[in-house]
């Protein structure tokens, strides 16, 4: 009876969200898929060209292929560093050292600062360091840009994964730790055989978040290097943006790139969740 009464209230409860969801997601998504097979400059003059856009992306666009590998390498390096540092700091902060709350507050803070602002903050610092040490600037080589973004992402995201890891470590039952100690396990064994398997759900979440974030990184890239030198430090998202808005007549190719990008991110997300979920301990 409850449900039947509630059904009448559909326009009030679900309709506003549904309409906004159609405007903000479903229609643009459907149009995006369709337009990736078209040649167009505005949405109204679309002409069906089949798979031609996709062929051009993979055959003639060397910048896109470069951005793809550059992004993949960047994602691997930043996922590993962020999670290793984040987990280590979380381990230290669960030892009951004095001032834990202050440390936690400080480490989490950069997470709330936006990508554009972060990019310009680090541009100042990295340019200062690079000009002193190598007598160059950040835009001199794509390698500087790469490590600049890795450092920036670490600074921003370590605090975030740290919070999630702390929650995970605190949930490990103390009986398990005591039992392991009584059985004579060393600190390393306790970490590897008890703590790590027990915080596997947190590891799944953190690698998922950092992986998708690094793949989708845009603001920081735009502010820090904007692709310099000559689009060599461009990540995928920025490459797609430049294809759309940097040159006229390439909108169809830009949309095709966006579809490829979506498929890569989606496949990675699903594969990663599947792989790490298998390792989780059932309690």
């Amino acid at each position: 009876m409850n449900k039947k009464v509630l059904r009448i209230y559909f326009p009030l409860f679900a309709l506003p969200t549904l309409i906004a969801f159609i405007i903000g997601f479903l229609v643009p998504f459907g149009m995006g898929i369709y337009l990736s097979f078209c040649k167009f400059t505005t949405v109204n003059d679309a002409q069906w060209v089949g798979f031609k856009n996709f062929q051009e992306v993979f055959k003639y666009d060397s910048e896109f292929i470069h951005a793809l590998w550059y992004t993949a390498l960047f994602a691997v390096v930043s996922v590993i560093t962020i999670n290793v540092f984040g987990f280590s700091i979380a381990m230290l902060l669960t030892k009951g050292i004095r001032g834990t709350n202050i440390f936690r507050t400080v480490f989490f803070m950069p997470n709330l600062i936006g990508g554009i602002v972060l990019g310009y903050i680090w541009q100042l610092i990295l340019n200062g360091i690079i000009s002193k040490v190598f007598d160059a600037t950040l835009t001199y080589s794509a390698t500087y840009g790469f490590w600049g973004m890795v450092i920036l992402m670490n600074w921003q995201q370590i605090g975030y994964v740290m919070i999630i890891y702390i929650a995970g470590i605190q949930n490990v039952p103390s009986e398990l730790l005591e039992a392991a100690r009584i059985d004579g396990a060393t600190d390393v064994q306790v970490l590897g055989k008890v703590i790590l398997p027990m915080v596997m759900p947190s590891i799944t979440i953190c690698t998922f978040i950092t992986l998708t974030n690094s793949f989708k990184l845009f603001d920081q890239n735009l502010a820090l290097t904007n692709g310099a030198p000559s689009n060599k430090s461009q990540l995928l998202a920025l490459n797609i943006y430049d294809t759309f808005y940097g040159r006229a007549g390439y909108e169809g190719i830009g949309q095709a790139k966006a579809v490829v990008f979506f498929i890569i991110v989606g496949a990675l997300a699903v594969a990663q969740l599947f792989l790490t979920h298998r390792k989780e301990v059932q309690q």
Partner: peptide, 17 residues
């Protein structure tokens, strides 16, 4: 929709809006 990157709908969303 949570795993769809913004670049996928960027152009068409701007046009719709």
């Amino acid at each position: 929709s949570m795993i769809v990157p913004f670049q996928m709908v960027m152009f068409t969303l701007a046009k719709t809006a």
